[in-house]
Each structure stands twice: as structure tokens, then as C-alpha cells.
Simulated assay, not measured.
Amino acid sequence: MPLSTSILPSFPEGLPLAPIATVSYKQLLDGNHNDASRVLEAAQTHGFFYLDLQGAPEGDTFLSEAEQLYALAKDAFASPLDEKLQFALERGVSLFGYKPTGTVKTTDRSQRPDSTEFICIAKDHLHGVTPSRLYPPPIEQHRPLLQSFTRHGHACGMLILRTLASRLGLAPDAFTRLNRFDQPSGDHCRLTHTGPHSADANNVLGLPSHTDFGSVTVLFNWLGGLQIESPSSISSSGSSSSSHESEWLWVQPLPGHAIVNLGDAMVTFTNGTLKSAKHRVVPPLGSQGAADRYSVVYFVRPHNDVPMRALGEFDRGSGLAAAAAAKAVAGKFSAGLEEGEVLTAGEWMRRRAVQLGN
């Protein structure tokens, strides 16, 4: 492990861990059926899995770039707040730019402000798909690294989508054609930072519980804090049970691995056959709580003109539970929609951006 991360405190022992599967990137590239089956099972159950990137040239490069972006994040977030705010994103308009701490998500019942700042860098801006905004100087100075990382992140997402299509008996491009790299979309790299927490960590929230917007999320983190909702906390309709508090399970970062999950777009495209799991970020426990927490993420999202509706293979006969799960996703911003109205992915993302709050 590089020096920048090898000196971090260890993940605490004895925490309830999410029993998520490990899948080999190399084996997926080689067409291994066992690993492909584990991807589908994860996408239908916990919604998360570890992706071992070691041993494949593309995976090793992707890992190296993530470590370099870890160092870049430390540099970028060290700037004074007034300098970072010069590159702030436009709330409710765009997700690209700098977001300070203190956001209250409109759909979060606790209404606690978050303690995480992040910088979102659009794939479209990095690769000339659309005109670029200005980003903080450390970002602008490392555009070649970000360009390469986003290409590898998108390729990783496409491998996952091809794998899912294959295991579901669909055409190889059933999902990838909805997430084209060369078309305007919400794809982006996100760098995040959460500062150390005091003994009052119970009243602090890194990021409130949520599901991701898009198709595939590829996450690199080096400290604990990520939790996913236990399937036992979820009713058959796909929503959290109101009869008891949700049970949250920890996801321990593993060296050489990314953490992969699906987003709400895949629930919509498959009419609830696949799952976007609810997750959150809380303060790391033990000695990790005294350290700054950074993460590097790539989000694959449908390109902007894709209709957000079930594919033909899933628009009927999926069962009541699947239909209810898909409806629950759409219900996150269904107010104001006319009966039968279908949003494009671009409008879908804009409405979800509004929910980020104040």
C-alpha cells in the first residue's frame, strides 16, 4: 500500500459487518461464470459487493490512479474555505463543483446537517463532451490524471453492466447503450473529505441515508464509516420497515478493492429486479475517528436523453414486489408528475439534485 494510506489507523474489530461478496475484476474480464453470478446475486440482495482489482493491468492502473487522487483530495481540501467556495456548485441546478459541509438533505428525516465536503468533476467537462466550468487549481492541474481515472471508472461500470445483462439473458448492450461515455450525462468523479470527530460523534452525520441516483457507483475509501442497511430492515415492498429502527452494517475497506453498488436507474430499467441499497456515512469508530476521511468515487449515470422507464423485457410480469420497488424509486420525486409522465435522465438527475437540500 502506498505510504499515504499505509499509516492510517486500523479498522476496529468486533463491528457488525455487511456480508457482501468479493468479485474478481480479472475473472469478470475472462468471463468467469461464478464471479458473474456473484455480481447478479449482489445486485438482487445487498446491492453492494467488493471488486478485487488486483492482477489485471486495467485494474492495477485504476487502483494506482485512485491512490493518486487520494493525495490530490488532501491537497484540494486543504485550501481555505473562501477559496473553495469560489468554485461552489449551483444547488438545484448542477452537481458539479464544490459542496461545503452543512447540507441538510430534504428527504432526510433526521434533518441533521452533513459533515462532508466534496468536489464533483464532470466526465463531460474532462473529455470535451460539453463546455467545462472552472474547478479549484489542484483539480485543473491534474486533468490528465482525472481523464484517465474517469475512463477506467466508466470501463469498470460497463463491465458490470455487461455482466448483469449476460446473467439476465439480455443483449450484451442492453444497459451499456443507456450509459454512453461520449454523450452528455451526469457521470463524474467525486472527491470527498470528512474531518476528525470528537466524542460527540453520535450527533454527527457524514452523509445521510440515501440510494445513489444513477447506474453504477465505484468507490475507493481507506477508513471506515460506510454503512449499508441490512436486508432484514427492509419490507417486501422495498421500503424500510416502520416498525423498528433500521439495522446498519459496516463495510470494511479492503486493500486492493473497490466497493461497487447499483443506483436507482438500474431499479427503474429492470422494474425492481435489481436493487439500489440504502447506505450512509457515519463517523469512523476507534482510533480512525481521529483521522481525516477521504474517498474517491466514480458515478456512471445514464446519458441525458435516455427515458427513465423499464426496458421492454421488464415492463410487465415482474411481480408486485418488483413493481412496488420500482415505484418507490420514482416516488422520491413524483410530486408534480402527470400520470404516465416519463422523465429523461437529465431531468431525473436535476430533480434529484434539488433534493440535496440547503
Rank of each mutant, 00 (worst) to 15 (best):
5 T>F: 00
11 F>H: 13
13 E>F: 04
15 L>V: 11
16 P>W: 02
23 V>S: 05
25 Y>G: 05
25 Y>D: 13
26 K>H: 11
27 Q>Y: 01
28 L>E: 10
33 H>F: 05
34 N>D: 14
34 N>V: 13
35 D>Q: 13
37 S>A: 12
40 L>K: 08
41 E>I: 05
43 A>F: 05
44 Q>L: 06
51 L>F: 07
54 Q>V: 09
54 Q>H: 10
54 Q>D: 07
55 G>Q: 08
55 G>R: 03
57 P>G: 11
63 L>Y: 00
66 A>S: 15
67 E>I: 03
68 Q>T: 12
70 Y>A: 11
75 D>Q: 15
75 D>S: 09
77 F>R: 12
80 P>S: 02
86 Q>T: 12
89 L>M: 13
92 G>L: 01
94 S>V: 10
95 L>S: 15
95 L>I: 15
96 F>I: 11
97 G>K: 08
99 K>I: 06
101 T>P: 13
107 T>H: 14
107 T>G: 13
113 P>L: 04
116 T>D: 03
117 E>T: 10
118 F>N: 15
120 C>K: 14
121 I>N: 07
121 I>H: 06
124 D>L: 03
124 D>A: 04
126 L>S: 08
127 H>F: 01
127 H>P: 11
140 E>V: 03
141 Q>W: 04
141 Q>T: 09
143 R>H: 07
145 L>K: 13
145 L>H: 06
149 F>C: 07
151 R>Q: 13
151 R>V: 10
154 H>V: 07
160 I>H: 08
172 P>A: 02
172 P>H: 02
176 T>F: 00
181 F>P: 05
181 F>W: 07
189 C>V: 15
189 C>Y: 06
191 L>E: 09
193 H>K: 14
195 G>H: 07
197 H>Y: 06
199 A>W: 05
201 A>S: 15
201 A>T: 14
208 P>M: 02
208 P>V: 03
209 S>D: 14
210 H>C: 08
214 G>V: 00
220 F>D: 12
220 F>V: 11
224 G>D: 08
225 G>K: 08
230 S>P: 04
236 S>P: 01
237 S>R: 12
244 H>R: 14
244 H>M: 07
258 A>Q: 09
259 I>L: 12
261 N>E: 01
262 L>R: 13
265 A>P: 11
274 L>F: 08
274 L>N: 02
276 S>E: 03
281 V>S: 04
284 P>W: 00
287 S>Q: 15
290 A>P: 09
294 Y>G: 11
297 V>H: 15
297 V>F: 12
301 R>M: 05
301 R>G: 02
303 H>L: 05
306 V>R: 01
310 A>R: 11
313 E>Q: 11
316 R>M: 11
319 G>M: 07
326 A>S: 13
328 A>I: 02
331 G>Y: 03
338 E>P: 11
339 E>A: 09
339 E>F: 05
340 G>I: 10
357 G>A: 03
